[in-house]
Design a protein around this nucleic acid. Structure first.
Length: 401
DNA sequence: TCGGCAAGCCAC
DNA sequence: AAACGTGGCTTGCCGA
């Protein structure tokens, strides 16, 4: 490698290979048990990794109800389908779901991350693409470190294997609900802006506003629905998509959306304005001036046009968040140096930055990184909502997150 | 043996 | 019907 490139090589992050080896073995053993169980139920060997064989077994041989076809005409066997069948009391779908989870974790993460350790540094060095997304986000590849599991307990075992060197800590600093905050700013939504200023639970506030349920003692399912709606809004919501996400009838999802627009009329205005704008000029812009091209929207079929419209609604929000964290990243090395800190910035995960620092610097890095991130929009843009950052230090990524 | 597509699933 | 946005990566499968 030429010296200039060697000097620019990214710091990489340490993983504990022993931990991942143990995990890989554990996953293998448990997958073998699920496989034996599944084959006993079916009465013969089959490939649990083959959606085609699974579809034939579930809907051909066993004639289970609710079969759906994929775009190419094959039986669909994705997780939501298997969950439905499992809820009806069928044993095989649950085993397949459990097997798939472990297969995913082992195949995509555990085994691959061990392979990805660079012998020269003993660390994993991802590559970031700076111009590969339409919205301005970075993307990460070889290996992708922007999709390390976090949702399930099994998945978090992988995240725990991302560790600091002895004497160091990992520090994770992430923006709290940055996209909803940007929606509140861009759409100029008074209730949302006020809620963020007061530091309220935004999903509970949404639920309360929509369903008239007090925030105190709110049932978790009510909040969960409001949260799904808030995410849906950012994605350019459709009744079909929300219905699918919440496993509810489309009519009910449509009613939720109508109620939402009644309570937050500024959001509908933002969406209508954005659609008109993209039709007119063939692009939309973030508040920092980044353009996202969405050309020829007029020539598309209705389905394609609606897809493009949702992308146009999402792009200024997702793109502004990308702009802000980029600004923070640019300022971070200088800010650390000026503060006399030897911390290094290791990873970016869209709304999160991960650092490694001597344990003695932990608190100072949390404070400094939070400050730089919170003010990263300035002075280019004066946001009318505060940005909040949560920062924590720990020996591994899971506990820092 | 290779490349590409389909299906599926991980993250934000 | 590209049936809620942005990505990367795996296995199975098929044809060159």
């Amino acid at each position: 490698m030429p010296p200039v490139l060697a000097a620019m090589e990214n710091a990489g992050i340490r993983i504990d290979p022993d931990q991942l080896h143990r995990l890989s073995h554990d996953f293998s053993m448990r997958m073998a048990e699920f496989e034996a169980e599944a084959q006993k139920l079916v009465g013969r060997p089959f490939n649990l990794g083959s959606p085609k064989q699974i579809g034939d077994i579930l809907f051909g041989e066993m004639s289970l109800p609710g079969a759906k076809k994929t775009a190419s005409g094959a039986w669909g066997t994705d997780a939501s389908m298997l969950e439905e069948l499992a809820a009806q009391g069928h044993a095989l779908p649950r085993i397949l779901l459990d097997w798939r989870q472990l297969s995913k974790l082992k195949g995509t993460y555990t085994d691959n991350l061990i392979q990805a350790v660079a012998p020269r540094t003993g660390r994993v060095h991802t590559s970031y693409a700076l111009a590969s997304t339409t919205t301005g986000r970075l993307s990460s590849n070889d290996p992708n470190l922007q999709n390390i599991p976090v949702r399930t307990e099994e998945g978090r075992k992988i995240r725990k294997a991302f560790v600091a060197e002895a004497g160091n800590v990992l520090i994770s600093a992430d923006y709290s609900q940055i996209e909803l905050r940007l929606l509140a700013h861009i759409g100029d939504i008074p209730q949302l802006k006020q809620a963020f200023k007061e530091g309220l639970d935004i999903h509970a506030m949404t639920a309360s506003e929509m369903f008239g349920v007090p925030v105190e003692g709110m049932p978790s399912d009510v909040r969960r629905r409001a949260k799904a709606i808030n995410f849906g809004i950012i994605y350019g919501i459709s009744a079909f998509g929300l219905a699918n996400q919440l496993s509810i009838p489309r009519e009910e999802a449509g009613a939720y959306i109508n109620t939402y627009f009644e309570r937050f009329p500024g959001i509908r205005e933002y969406m209508d304005k954005t659609k008109a704008l993209v039709r007119e000029q063939g692009y939309v812009s973030t508040i920092f001036g980044r353009r996202v091209n969405i050309p020829d929207i007029r020539g598309l079929t209705p389905a394609h046009r609606q897809f493009a419209e949702r992308a146009a609604i999402n792009a200024p929000i997702q793109g502004a968040a990308a702009d802000i964290i980029r600004r923070a990243m640019i300022r971070m090395p200088v800010a650390l140096k000026d503060a006399g800190l030897s911390a290094r910035m290791l990873l970016q995960v869209h709304d999160e930055l991960v650092f490694e620092a001597p344990a003695a610097e932990a608190e100072a890095v949390c404070v400094l990184a939070s400050r730089v991130m919170k003010h990263a929009a300035e002075p280019a843009v004066a946001l009318t909502v505060p940005l909040e950052v949560e920062a924590r230090a720990a020996a591994n990524w899971d506990e820092a997150h």
